[in-house]
Design a protein around this nucleic acid. Structure first.
Length: 742
DNA sequence: GACCTGCTGCGGCGTG
């Protein structure tokens, strides 16, 4: 908002004169709508606020212009006032980026901005603690470390705290890390004995009331919502279809290598993206490596410099920095990545986004698209490349429906509608409660059982845990020697608990697997999970290059490689699939039933959609939900991961040989009539008892401290996370209300 | 067939 274009009514004039001057100096044509709207509620400094607007609308500034206005007005701003704002970010790279942007503003106002995470050197941290003031930009893990290691200093450090800002809030909601963050904010409020206003920032919140409940558990209705409906950049979408080549019976050995369709996709990328800046998102690290390898090979074949670099979570910091720096430079570059470049990291102006394989959520697709279209007047460009199985023979009717193609379409359709997945709520997060209990005991030196239940459950974010469940949890902690009780009833850390808390791996709420470090000539390339068999003399594709494995040191967990032009495979990094929401599957069903041909489908994809619709009708799925095969029946409920998982366990519990087959459930050894009768028999029982159902599942451990839980508590935790008995019963009612098949 | 995130203190060594 420059003086010439600001109206007398503009909120711009409420900002501190020094902040106004800084804005003029930036020569912005005007404040964005979201920046105008956010000024009054944040300046008030007495309430929680959610700021939501499309990507690249300047949400960070929307929060910090009024925040800094208020800080400048405070009489004691300057050295030694203590931290006035805690800014929490999900990624180190994001914190570095925010630090760069906010330091410029802070410098002109005399407000210190300090980034704090694992890569910041300890000298800088020490200096900050000697003269704390201004804005502290920090990860949840580093804040956790402050609680454990400097618990006694914190009341003073945070005495002048005025705001907590959460950047990319959607990336926390519903996860262990999100519950940890809620707990940490609650513990900050407890330290200073005040309610510190919380400011949440995000572009992709699917459900505002759930987001508000996340920001202030139990009091979400009082959170003020600041929302801009200003359109982001115009969109240009294309979905391209590719068919896998028919399996050549002589080439079974080559199954791990890229097929001709991957080569065709790479050819298209090579032709379209070279000479400009782009991001290519792929759903697995293994495929990132495969495509980086093919594209490097193409550059060699054409005798041109390679413009394609890989970027994923298992690459070393140095190699990732190389790709990020290249993106910020002037030369053309395309980075092939997983979700590592999905969020706010400023990668400069990117011409287009490519996505290989259907994405699994609308929200992450929106985030990825937000990386593009930052050049004035240019649209955001997204090309989605989907592969369908070879026509003859289909190994399963599920394949013939081309579910990847139709899921990709469903996600694009929902994206165009402006819908995003709401967070999954109602989880117990017992693993994270254990984590926070240990941390709080370490911070205070000891704690009473009654007091800790009140703090974490009655008044804090673990509201789903009642006193009975909490008492059982404490007993599990005692049994494993994580805690012990002193004679006067104080909870103290046990020997095992001490050992856990005193190791640096304690600060994360999520679990990680052990990994080998991959090095060449003393330089780190990245990491591989220890589950992957690696032998000397093997060829390996990593960091988009080809290597020969020289040695494997299983004590030090180091693999030494040397450059070599030889055949090799991109490694498998493991991992589990993402949750798919009900609405995506329901939209897929509508697409199969419809006749509409969206404009974003390229010619080949249009033809494949017609085939998918024909196969859909040929199976009888336009009328029913069961497809009989030899010796087995496929069940298509068209629901998301939670219902599919519940239904699967429910069928298994009823003695049926069920398994998950992509978007369907496969049941062996029954006729359609028998399966329908079995489903019919479930109806009078009402929604299944999730606790009892969880008892039939064997591998229930998935979170960091699940190993501490008794079978009973593990069932509680699993049922809350992986089952939706109510929605599953609803699904059965709807399915059985109609003809199962022709 | 399958995502990602994050982490302290201190000893040892080399350099200015």
């Amino acid at each position: 908002m420059t003086p010439s274009s600001s109206t007398p009514a503009s909120n711009f004039w409420q900002l501190h004169p020094q902040v106004q001057q800084w804005i003029w100096a930036q020569q912005w044509p005007a404040l964005r709508e979201i920046q105008e709207l956010a000024i009054p509620p944040i300046l008030a400094g007495d309430r929680d606020v959610i700021v939501t607007a499309a990507t690249a609308q300047g949400k960070t500034e929307a929060a910090f212009l009024p925040i800094c206005s208020r800080l400048v007005d405070q009489p004691h701003t300057g050295a030694n006032t203590g931290v006035q704002v805690i800014g929490i970010g999900p990624l180190k790279a994001l914190i570095n980026d925010q630090n760069r942007r906010l330091s410029a503003l802070g410098d002109s106002l005399g407000i210190t901005v300090c980034p704090w995470h694992g890569d910041i050197d300890s000298g800088r941290k020490k200096r900050f603690l000697q003269q704390p003031s201004g804005v502290l930009l920090i990860t949840p893990e580093s804040l956790e470390a402050l609680f454990v290691l400097r618990g006694s200093q914190l009341p003073q450090l945070f005495a002048s705290l005025a705001y907590i800002v959460i950047d990319e809030m959607h990336s926390f909601i519903g996860l262990e890390r999100g519950r940890q963050l809620q707990s940490l904010m609650h513990r900050v409020d407890g330290l200073v004995e005040r309610r510190i206003p919380r400011i949440g920032l995000s572009a992709t919140l699917g459900d505002m009331s759930l987001a508000a409940d996340f920001l202030r558990p139990g009091a979400g209705e009082a959170v003020q919502l600041v929302q801009s409906f200003a359109k982001g950049d115009p969109l240009k979408l294309q979905l391209r279809g590719y068919r896998q080549a028919a399996e050549d019976s002589d080439s079974i050995d080559q199954e791990a290598g890229p097929g001709p369709e991957a080569i065709a996709i790479a050819d298209h990328l090579f032709a379209q993206l070279r000479g400009d800046k782009n991001l290519v998102f792929i759903n697995s690290r293994q495929q990132v490596e495969q495509y980086a390898d093919i594209l490097r090979q193409l550059a060699t074949d054409h005798g041109v410099p390679n413009e394609f670099l890989p970027h994923h979570g298992s690459l070393s910091k140095g190699l990732r920095a190389e790709a990020e720096t290249a993106l910020k430079g002037d030369a053309p570059i395309t980075v092939i990545c997983t979700m590592t470049l999905e969020m706010g990291i400023d990668v400069g102006a990117v011409q287009s986004i490519a996505q290989i394989g259907s994405p699994s959520s609308v929200a992450s697709t929106r985030q990825r698209l937000g990386r593009s279209g930052r050049r004035p007047g240019e649209p955001a460009v997204l090309r989605v490349y989907v592969t369908v199985p070879a026509m003859t023979p289909f190994t399963s009717p599920v394949d013939a429906l081309y579910p990847d193609l139709v899921q990709g379409m469903a996600i694009l359709n929902l994206l165009l509608e402006g819908w995003y997945e709401p967070p999954i709520v109602g989880q117990l997060h017992l693993s994270t409660l254990i984590h926070q209990l240990l941390s709080q005991i370490a911070q205070q030196g000891g704690m009473r059982a009654e007091q800790s239940w009140r703090h974490f459950c009655e008044q804090g974010p673990f509201a789903e845990v009642d006193q009975t469940l909490f008492a059982k949890l404490l007993r599990c902690l005692g049994d494993r020697d994580l805690i012990q009780q002193s004679q006067d009833g104080l909870l103290l850390l046990g020997l095992t608990g001490e050992r856990l808390v005193n190791h640096y791996s304690f600060y994360t709420a999520f679990s990680t697997t052990e990994e080998y470090r991959l090095t060449t000539a003393g330089q780190s390339l990245g990491t591989l999970p220890t589950t992957m068999p690696i032998l000397p003399e093997m060829g390996l594709i990593f960091a988009g290059r080809r290597w020969l494995v020289e040695s494997v040191d299983s004590d030090q967990q180091v693999i030494e490689v040397s450059p070599a032009q030889m055949d090799g495979q991109a490694p498998s990094f493991g991992g589990s699939s993402a949750f798919v929401h009900d609405r995506i599957r329901q939209t897929m069903l509508a697409i199969y039933r419809g006749t509409d041909i969206p404009a974003y489908l390229e010619a080949k994809a249009q033809q494949l959609l017609q085939e998918a619709r024909t196969h859909f009708a040929d199976c009888g799925l336009d009328q029913g939900y069961l497809v009989p095969e030899e010796e087995q029946v496929l069940l298509f409920p068209w629901r998301g991961s939670l219902v599919m998982n519940t239904l699967l366990v429910l069928l298994l519990d009823n003695g049926l040989k069920a398994s998950l087959e992509g978007v369907a459930l496969k049941v062996k050894g029954v006729s359609p009539e028998e399966l329908q009768a079995a489903l019919q028999a479930l109806l009078p029982l009402g929604p299944a008892n999730p606790l009892r159902l969880a008892g039939t599942v064997r591998n229930k451990r998935s979170e960091k401290y699940d190993w501490v839980l008794s079978e009973e508590l593990l069932c509680h935790n699993y049922a809350a996370r992986f089952f939706d008995a109510q929605a599953t019963w609803q699904t059965l009612l709807e399915l059985l209300g109609k003809d199962p098949r022709i």
